[in-house]
Simulated scan of single mutants.
Amino acid sequence: MDHKLFKRERWNRILELVNERDFLSIDEMKKLLNVSEITIRRDMKELNDRALVQKVYGGIKKIDSNPPEAQFAQRRMSHANEKALIAKLTIEFVEDGDTIFIDASSTTFEFAKVCREKRNNLHVVTSSLVTALELIKNPTNTVTLIGGIIRADNMSVIGTTAEKMVEDLNVEKAFISCRTFEPDEGTFETNPSESVIKRKMADNSNKVYLLVDSSKLFKKATFLTVPVEKINAVITDGKVDELINVLPKKVKVVHGV
């Protein structure tokens, strides 16, 4: 079994247990997961650093509240391997010096991390607080954070001010994700302002790249956001044959395993 996948499954089990019991000791985790104390202590540190648990004497405890950082970290862990793969595939569509939109999603955040490492002199407009903070770690980048109301659970900026700002900007490429994607219609969202912002990003870009893991494919949500006719490429991890059969011929499907 892949080591990273095993670790992800172990973390998910730890989170399930600590949510059930409120506190887990090091000895309990060693017995329940059948791993060494060194491994447990490493897991404890990484989960604590991601604000998913609180490390205490002798073990870990459930976090009393659910701050925005923890909510976003939990979303990042969902289908994490798929999102990392999609990010690596998507970087091939970015060149040094590009001017781009990046939306506020956990998938495009993984893509932003790769951009920070692999590309320079990017001009990025984003509605994501965490993406903006990630990209400015590379001092060659210029980052414009869209202004408006902060949506805490998504670490994003929404509202009429944000929508107006996006409407007045034009870029070469937009990199977006979605809540769901129905390939004969387009992308869908559940938040109306997020939907408007992503639609305007697509409208004001020369090319649109959709980053979407296979768990979101062939599903609908409340708000149709970006019609499939606006999309130039779909970057995903699976269901490739089904996508090719339904998508317009002009839409490129990029995938990995």
Rank of each mutant, 00 (worst) to 15 (best):
H3A: 13
F6D: 12
N12D: 15
R13I: 13
E16S: 13
E20T: 09
R21W: 04
D22E: 15
S25Y: 00
D27C: 00
D27Q: 13
K30I: 15
K30E: 08
S36E: 10
R41A: 08
R42A: 13
N48M: 09
V56G: 10
Y57L: 14
G59E: 01
S65H: 12
N66L: 15
N66M: 14
P67Q: 05
P68K: 02
P68R: 02
A70W: 00
F72D: 01
A73Y: 02
R76F: 00
M77T: 01
A84D: 02
A84E: 11
L85F: 04
K88E: 14
T90K: 07
F93D: 10
T99F: 11
I100Q: 01
I100W: 05
I100R: 05
I102A: 06
D103V: 02
T107K: 01
F109T: 07
F111L: 12
K113H: 01
R116S: 14
R116D: 07
N120V: 09
L122K: 06
L122D: 05
H123C: 11
H123G: 13
V124L: 10
V124P: 04
S127W: 00
V130D: 11
E134Q: 10
E134Y: 04
N138G: 08
N141G: 06
T142Y: 09
V143Q: 06
T144N: 13
I146Y: 04
I146L: 08
G147D: 07
G148H: 01
G148K: 01
I150M: 10
V157I: 03
V157L: 02
I158V: 13
M165G: 00
M165K: 01
E167Q: 11
L169Q: 05
V171C: 14
K173Q: 03
I176F: 05
C178T: 14
R179N: 03
T180A: 11
E182P: 11
E185W: 00
G186N: 02
V196Y: 00
I197E: 00
I197F: 00
I197K: 03
K198N: 10
R199W: 05
M201E: 03
N204E: 09
S205H: 06
N206W: 07
N206I: 05
K207V: 10
V208Y: 05
L210V: 06
L210F: 03
V212C: 11
S214H: 09
K216R: 13
L224D: 06
P227A: 14
V228M: 07
E229S: 14
I231E: 13
A233H: 10
V234E: 12
V240H: 02
V240Y: 03
E242H: 04
V246W: 11
P248K: 11
P248R: 13
K252P: 00
K252W: 08
K252N: 08
H255L: 02
H255T: 12
H255K: 08
V257C: 05
